[in-house]
């Protein structure tokens, strides 16, 4: 079997039956932005813009290196951006400009979901 054959036969997200180490029973308090990212996924699904299945394909399309190295919601938000570019709902340029603008702001002004974020933040600090 060639080395590349495995890449063809198995997509990066397809893990069933592979060898792996013991299950680490890790859990973490979801960060506010992770929860918002999840809420965004649900909303985009409700609006029939990105279905659960399209989201999974979007993550797969990131390729094995990103699937391996990015965290769960990091993969989601990057996949959403790519899908929104493909659907011409957003352009890469718009996103780049907006990200610069967001990054330059005092950070406490960037959470319009104030109450929920503040609650979750406290949990995180305590943990």
């Amino acid at each position: 079997m060639t080395q590349t054959e495995n890449l063809v036969k198995r997509l990066p997200t397809e893990m069933g039956g592979l060898d792996a180490g013991p299950v680490q029973r890790t859990e973490h308090e979801y960060a506010p932005w992770e929860k918002r990212c999840h809420a965004l996924a649900n909303i985009l699904d409700n609006h029939k813009i990105i279905s659960t299945e399209a989201k999974r394909r979007g993550v797969e399309a990131l390729g094995s290196e990103m699937v391996e190295k990015l965290t769960y919601y990091e993969r989601w938000i990057v996949a959403f951006a790519n899908i929104l570019f493909q659907k011409q709902i957003l352009t890469p340029e718009e996103l780049a400009i907006k990200m610069q603008e967001v990054a330059a702001r005092p950070w406490d002004e960037t959470a319009p979901c104030g109450e929920t974020s503040a609650k979750a933040d406290k949990g995180k600090t305590a943990a």
Partner: peptide, 18 residues
Amino acid sequence: PDTGDAVPGYYEVMETAV
């Protein structure tokens, strides 16, 4: 703010921007 993160991460910025 009380997030403990003085500077937002790249992906957090992306989420807010999107």
